[in-house]
């Protein structure tokens, strides 16, 4: 499979990365080079193989239902949450107006 300018433009849009025409042109051969190379995986017979789900055999641990048990994973920290915001007003984050 290989990508063309339109495909790369679509991927860039999905990934929300603005690209210029010039950048697009440059990216197409680069991405095709990488994609052609990774496609050698297609030659591996994996018909009876399960995709890896846990690199080290392990199962999911669950947490107890307790609010703010650990301050690092709890809430009630509005100042810390907003501290680095480019725009914060009245306790909210601000973004350009969205029309739904």
């Amino acid at each position: 499979m290989s990508v063309d300018t339109a495909t790369v433009a679509k991927i860039a849009s999905l990934a929300r990365i603005k690209v210029t025409e010039g950048e697009l042109e440059a990216m197409v051969p680069e991405l095709n080079g990488i994609l052609n190379w990774v496609e050698q995986l297609g030659e591996v017979d994996t018909s009876n193989v399960e995709p890896m789900t846990a690199v080290i055999p392990n199962t999911l641990r669950l947490r107890e239902d307790v609010v703010d048990a650990d301050p690092l994973t709890g809430g009630g920290k509005r100042e810390e949450v907003l501290a680095n915001a480019p725009v914060a007003e009245h306790g909210f984050f601000g973004v350009p107006k969205v029309i739904e």
């Binding site: 239902d65 609010v67 703010d68 650990d70 690092l72 009630g76 920290k77 949450v81 009245h90």
Partner: peptide, 26 residues
């Protein structure tokens, strides 16, 4: 539930904005 699905922040309805937000929620 008392706390959120993946964080320890409270789920209570009607709190002041961004007061029930854990670092992971942000």
């Amino acid at each position: 539930s008392q706390a959120k699905l993946f964080s320890g922040a409270a789920t209570e309805f009607g709190a002041e904005p961004n007061t029930q937000v854990a670092l992971i929620d942000a």
